[in-house]
Design a protein around this nucleic acid. Structure first.
Lengths: 112, 112
DNA sequence: CGTTTCTTCATCTATTGTGAAGAAATGCCG
DNA sequence: CGGCATTTCTTCACAATAGATGAAGAAACG
């Protein structure tokens, strides 16, 4: 019994947060760039679209097709936003984690 | 390029936190019970052991074989603890997420 | 056309999910 | 005392979902 809509994979969570951060510039390519920066490691563009599709199917994001822009390669983009359910899902995860690591023991100091 | 040792799957993160919480009672069966409670959904015992094996191979937990106890079915248990690397990994994830959702927009009120 | 930007697709590995089978201990009862 | 059901815990085989990768396809401009 998979796909409880309130439970997110780690990548999916980061992706939702990144969609929020990018606001009206949340489409595939910059999402991919931003995620690469956050993770400090290359993120293949295919992973991003696959995750977006999953999230859309679960109803956590919605997408709208933009218009083309008068720039070199200004092809139409597919923009993403969080749905109410998506936002709830992020809040839910946050509450859970905030609770669980309140009692997290501190890191021991490394000897110099 | 998988398995960056500092990046955790969502289940793995919960598992590490649960190992911390259970302390000297952190072995397969209670871990499974505790995770089921946290997630509010059944967790198969196989998933737990599989994740533990992964985490051990990545060096994030260590395990020691206990002795048998004088109880019905008091079979020897395999106890788990976080390594330094494991603790660092949790802290790392926490810092990242705490940063990312500082600007998280609040949930809209549902109309009654 | 060639180039640029963006998306879709096919394929592969890794993570997670599930339940049954296997080990190791105790307790009951002949 | 000896065997067998029972309990607790672990290992295993297999299925499904999530994530990773790079090449191919679409649509725009110069």
């Amino acid at each position: 019994m998979p796909s409880d809509p309130t439970s997110l994979g780690d990548f999916e969570l980061l992706l939702l947060l990144t969609v929020l951060r990018l606001g009206d510039q949340a489409y595939g390519v910059p999402l991919c760039r931003e995620l690469s920066a956050i993770r400090r490691r290359g993120v293949a563009v295919g992973s991003v679209y696959a995750a977006l599709d999953r999230l859309q199917q679960k109803g956590l994001v919605s997408s709208t097709l933009g218009e083309s822009t008068p720039e070199r390669g200004g092809r139409a983009k597919r923009f993403f936003r969080l749905t109410q359910a998506g936002l709830r899902s992020v809040h839910h995860t946050r509450r859970l984690l905030d609770t669980l690591w309140t009692a997290l023991p501190p890191l021991a100091e490394e000897p110099a």
